[in-house]
Design a protein around this nucleic acid. Structure first.
Lengths: 174, 174
DNA sequence: CGCTTCTTTCACAAACTTGTGAAGTTACCG
DNA sequence: CGGTAACTTCACAAGTTTGTGAAAGAAGCG
């Protein structure tokens, strides 16, 4: 498999030719390393970084495998994860078996910051804790305040993202 | 459930005696599980949750080991990590060999949200990427916008924490 | 000062995670 | 419909991570 592209008829964009692969690789590995440090698994991190550094913001499974020197299986696993957490979306160009993966700025900022599901589950655990330990105990009170904090953050982050969009529109769509 | 409720003579603190260990344990394990899911290692998560659920907000190494059924070595490792990321502080009561670990709300909120070091390193990697790929390339532009986003977030999170403190003071210190 | 109590360090076995080759599945294309 | 390109699933070997017991290291106390 991977019998070197040959036919460039596909992947129409193809201005990619002159990009310095060395520079791309350097960025990909460095940025991925930071994501790993922040807790993300290795392959998803690398795949995501590669997409970020692509000109169109999209890559096919084969391109990812070749660029990162990993098996199709690894690409598949990484992409499944990334799609699940909404950091990339998958598209299939009609009339092809190839899948394309895309990083959509708007979308992944949201995914990154909102982390809503995560916070929601923390809140649930805290709420149970307040009930279980008693809202009138010292520990219960501490948990309640923590819960309060998360609820505050949650509201405020939404507002922050609004401000970001406004700021960006002001700056870029002009 | 609640098997041995018998020995309530220990835990000298007047009202502290009757805390239901079952309820505490349930909270600790559930909350810790959420922390683990969010990327934190297992032992630090459990130790932190136990501190959160304690009445005074402090526990000794021995208490942690007993409550969580882990070795002193495990406690030591977990606490070292938590102290490093400023989620707990260590204190030694004068005239004792016992170390006490404390969760200080103010402090760990900051630790949780600021994540400054992390974001800073992401920004560095992105900045290098913009330079390496060229600020005038499509990919370079994408990285620049991402960098822009992080810089925005960073500024805004600081303001958000201010608002939280104001809100909390309004609510609790009265 | 030496004893005792508590904490930390270290080496290692067990458990888990990761990425792979290979087989299996899906769906375009002729 | 059959061929085949592309993606996914599976079982497993290699590599990490984790938590432990044992030994070493601090530090109050007598």
């Amino acid at each position: 498999m991977l019998g070197t592209v040959g036919t460039m008829t596909e992947a129409v964009g193809a201005d990619a030719a002159v990009r310095d692969p060395e520079a791309v690789s350097t960025f990909v590995e460095r940025f991925a390393a930071q994501l790993v440090e922040a807790g993300m698994a290795r392959m998803p991190s690398r795949v995501f970084a590669a997409l970020l550094a692509s000109d169109t913001g999209t890559l096919t499974s084969a391109e990812l495998g070749e660029q990162l020197k990993i098996s199709p299986a690894a690409v598949s696993g990484a992409v499944r994860y990334l799609a699940q957490v909404h950091m990339v979306s998958r598209e299939r160009e009609p009339g092809s078996r190839r899948e394309r993966y895309r990083v959509h700025s708007d979308q992944w900022y949201e995914a990154l910051t909102s982390r809503e599901a995560v916070i929601k589950r923390w809140e649930d655990a805290l709420r149970e804790g307040v009930t279980g330990l008693g809202a009138d105990t010292p520990a219960g009170r501490r948990l309640a305040e923590t819960l309060d904090f998360f609820e505050f953050i949650e509201r405020d982050v939404a507002a922050m993202m609004e401000r970001w969009r406004a700021y960006r529109d002001e700056k870029y769509t002009r």
